[in-house]
Design a protein around this nucleic acid. Structure first.
Lengths: 148, 148
DNA sequence: TCTTGAACCTATAGTTACTGTAGACATTAC
DNA sequence: GTAATGTCTACAGTAACTATAGGTTCAAGA
């Protein structure tokens, strides 16, 4: 088992910044590794394994708190799988919601750009659409309430 | 022109929090309105108009800096529309990127949930997928670099 | 062996876009 | 008149990092 990985190598291996690794240690997401004579952190592959788990989960959109939960669950492997499953399901609902919002948004942006054909700002459709909700085809966000 | 809108009414009208309106004033995104005898902010409809613009743009994913740019552009309406168009296009690219990532992500979450059928955590596929990039079908995020 | 430059250390502040809190004053409804 | 609600300022907190300053350590070339 290699025990000679500096923080820079580890960060490069998992594809994040050195500061991020130190940050994860600071908030207790990874254990503090042993140090060299010169006080530098020395990691082995288990650190890369855990960091890969964390970064992967982050890229999948899990908040750090959910990752923390997952780690503590996996440290105690005799529990039923339901809790983990629950976290993934919650996450899926959230992801679906975000996709829908973004698609509506893309539609509107395309329309805005399409209608902006090199005129002057005075008749720029982008600004118009942004100012006037009635010109907006997206349905996933609220129109401001009309004053009475 | 009504000139008797308190900050609470304005916030409600545009669908944001009172603090958010004050925050926008603080960072110079909206002008400071006149005050009542008792030092309370009094808005008219032009404030609602501008705030609607801002909130709408925020919901479309524009960062505040882009909105700031759009506002300063629209204050000077004799320029060509290109700059505005450019901001929208940049935004569109970003939105496309986010949609793709989220779709890959959704795919993986579904697969994870599908394979987690009430076993114990020891053989929970969710944790496995998160730990091991090889089990991951998503292609939009980087596998960690293999150590040599 | 010396030196130089990159990588590392701690500690702290900054980022984005808000949100929440405390303690005081204003306004409105009954 | 009083109670409830709304508003005021100022400041702290949030997530998840990122950047900076000022110093130490390490690896490689002359």
């Amino acid at each position: 088992m290699t025990r000679d990985l500096t923080i820079g190598r580890v960060a490069e291996a998992v594809g994040c910044k050195v500061q991020t690794v130190r940050y994860y240690e600071q908030i207790g997401l990874i254990p503090a590794p042993p140090r060299s004579g010169g006080n530098q952190r020395l990691y082995d592959e288990s650190a890369i394994h855990r960091l890969t788990f964390i970064r992967h989960a982050r890229e999948l959109g899990f908040p750090l708190q959910a990752i923390r939960d997952l780690i503590s669950l996996s440290d105690d492997p005799n529990q039923p799988c339901d809790a983990v499953d629950e976290i993934a399901k919650t996450q899926l609902i959230e992801v679906n919601r975000r996709i829908e919002r973004l698609q509506a948004l893309r539609h509107e942006l395309k329309r805005m750009i399409h209608q902006c054909k090199g005129g002057s700002i005075a008749d720029c459709h982008v600004l118009e659409v942004l100012s006037d909700h009635n010109l907006c085809e997206a349905e996933d966000h609220q129109a401001p309430k009309k004053m009475t």
